[in-house]
Computed example of a mutant assay.
Amino acid sequence: MSATGLSRPRIVRAALDLIDRDGIDGLSMRRLGAELGVDPKAVYYYLPNKAALFDGVVEALYAEMRLDEIGAAGWRAELTEFATRLRDVLRRHPRAVLVFATRPGPVSAYAAGADRALARLREAGFAPRAALTMISCVRGLTVGLTIAEVVEPAGAGDTPVPQSLAAFPALAAAVAGGYDADEQFQAGLAAVLDGFAPGSFDNEETKWTSR
């Protein structure tokens, strides 16, 4: 840590706190410097630009998931635990979800966990390419459903125009029970995992085979 008390982890934590409070648009080097009580230029010594700062935020979100604590309990249980931890962290930081969804983050943030997961999936009978596809699908499903759940829609402050579903009886009946985010997540994850099985990936064609 420098004489000013700055460090990369402290800066990233302050950036995430700002995003949590004021959203992505509320984060600037000037505001970050004020939050830390330093000249904004001091931040550039640790993070050269705003893109690097966003990647640091992604790294912090991965660290909060504690993916290294996921035990070897079978491939399905491990992917379920990964998805659950990912969703829990993103729901705690709803204004940072789009940063996570659109920034790759540093490889060091996820490489160790991904390597362990890929090794375990290979032990379970999945080819390396299939295993990577599985992890990507589970991540994409989880992030997508979380975006739908917690990210404010464009024009959120405007009064919505009332709409009637009277002309669409099937749709009206389907939505009558309301929206249950947990149910959608659990059902979607189960459907994705049910579609995976050792041998369902054609290594020569490099695509999933229909069953």
Rank of each mutant, 00 (worst) to 15 (best):
S2A: 09
S2F: 09
S2D: 13
A3E: 10
L6S: 03
S7E: 04
L16N: 01
D20M: 15
D20L: 06
R21D: 11
R21H: 08
G23P: 02
M29H: 07
R30I: 09
R31C: 06
L32A: 04
G33S: 08
G33K: 04
G33C: 12
A34Y: 05
V38Y: 04
D39T: 11
K41W: 06
K41H: 05
Y44C: 08
Y45I: 10
Y46T: 04
L47T: 10
N49R: 12
A51G: 06
L53N: 00
F54Q: 13
G56S: 12
V58P: 00
G71P: 00
W75T: 03
E78R: 14
L79P: 00
T80L: 07
A83T: 04
D88T: 15
V89P: 01
L90P: 01
L90Y: 01
L90W: 03
L98Q: 08
V99P: 00
F100S: 01
R103G: 09
P104D: 13
A109E: 01
A109G: 02
Y110V: 13
A114K: 09
A114Y: 10
D115Y: 12
A117L: 10
A117Y: 06
R120Q: 11
R122D: 14
R122M: 09
P128F: 06
P128D: 05
A130R: 01
A131C: 08
L132D: 10
L132A: 11
T133I: 09
T133D: 15
R139S: 14
G140F: 06
L141T: 02
A148P: 01
E152I: 05
P153G: 04
G157D: 12
G157P: 01
D158R: 12
T159N: 00
T159E: 14
P162H: 05
L165K: 06
A167Y: 00
F168N: 13
F168C: 13
P169G: 10
A174E: 14
V175K: 04
G178E: 10
D180P: 04
E183Y: 03
A187T: 15
L189Q: 02
A190W: 03
V192P: 00
D194I: 07
A197I: 06
F201A: 13
D202L: 05
N203P: 14
E204Y: 04
T206D: 08
T209V: 12
S210K: 13
S210V: 07
S210N: 08
